[in-house]
Nucleic acid binder design. Structure first.
Lengths: 212, 212
DNA sequence: TAACCTCGTTCACTTAAGTTAAGAAACGTA
DNA sequence: TACGTTTCTTAACTTAAGTGAACGAGGTTA
């Protein structure tokens, strides 16, 4: 498969690999209970991939069918508008991304790239259709997961709309403090809907307030 | 059922009612094909309700299980923060709303009310669980619908993040021109993430530009 | 080592949104 | 009709984000 050139050879059987498999099954167990047979079907699908920092998983214009689930590391989605990168989301451990282009079957409007060396599961929508039709359980899990993500994203969107850049930054500091450490400032800035200079200034303003 | 006091008696068999039923079935047919038997199961559920402008369908603090689908009219979701209404979404014809509190089973953070006299389907999540388990087809439809809404909302969120209030207004003018007509300005303003005064000014600025 | 990037910060200046207040228009209702 | 309320607009002033430029710290490459 073409796009998989981006990936290092799929993870082989070492101890780290076992941890990743358990991470995935733990996640799934929040929604459905899998038999060993069903687990083996999943494991036979060559889902696990290790991806180097900077790797571009999806480019603007591509018609991808791939969904990602982050087992370790961080990936981000961004647009290039007027030659400028606009980061819109970060996905870290235990978070899933199905790019809109996979759902609406149109060329992608945005890019997905790897912020850190990461371990992901990479699945294909054709593959998912097949698994879902074989095991209705998976269909149920997908429904539950989409509904949950829809609700979460709704709340994130609402919080964004109803707060100022400064409030958004403080909110992020509270909810995902790790992001502020592991992600470059200019990517954080556009994630917060502002320019890097404004983020710098805003941070200075906050530490100034803290002193007094 | 308690909350249904908000609703006028469910729609009876008149010609308008027939149109509404067809509207619903047309919508469903985009995802799955229903047999007459399945349609009758749906019709037996007392889904259709006519709701007066101003009716509050969901209040902050409530633990609701109700989802809405707008057949005719307009409903909106909003928060009350520091005594101020913050409108975050409008749902018009052929749009569905499942409040986050229904999914995460927590008391609602926000309100849902009727912007115009409307006709809605009102469904209950217990009822949905039952129908889904009886007809796996519905499960599939729910999964497809959630995935589609998730992708759409993702795009909306990204557009919001990457554009200025003025661009957002112009974008809205382009994508949902009806909203600007049928919704009060101060509700539109917070939907755009700004104050009503700023929306007024922004509109004046735009018409000024148009002249030159 | 020198030249070159990228990244984050700071500064001065511009632009637009927030705030407060006031008034006009539209609406509902007694 | 008259009154009060809500809605929208305008204006003056404040505050914060956008813009363009400059600088230093780190990292990379020749």
């Amino acid at each position: 498969m073409d796009k998989c050139n981006a990936f290092a050879p799929s993870i082989t059987n070492n101890s780290n690999s076992q941890i990743m498999k358990n991470t995935l099954f733990d996640f799934i167990s929040k929604y459905i209970t899998l038999t060993d047979d069903e687990k083996n079907v999943l494991l036979s699908l060559d889902l696990f991939h290790s991806v180097k920092k900077g790797t571009i998983l999806l480019k603007e214009g591509q018609k991808s069918k791939e969904s990602y689930f982050v087992l370790k590391g961080c990936i981000r989605s961004y647009y290039i508008l007027d030659g400028e990168e606009k980061t819109t989301a970060f996905y870290t451990e235990m978070e899933a991304l199905t790019p809109p282009c996979v759902i609406n079957k149109m060329p992608s409007d945005y890019y997905v790239s790897c912020v850190e060396d990461s371990i992901l599961t990479v699945s294909n929508s054709d593959m998912e259709v097949e698994v879902n039709s074989k095991f209705p359980k998976f269909e149920i899990m997908c429904r539950m997961l989409s509904e949950e993500l829809l609700a979460k994203q709704r709340i994130d969107f609402d919080e964004f709309k109803t707060s100022s850049p400064e409030q958004r930054y403080l909110n992020l500091l509270h909810k995902r403090p790790d992001l502020i450490q592991r992600v470059p400032q200019h990517q954080l800035a556009s994630y917060l809907g502002i320019k890097p200079q404004s983020l710098s200034r805003l941070r200075a303003r906050i530490t100034e307030k803290d002193k007094s």
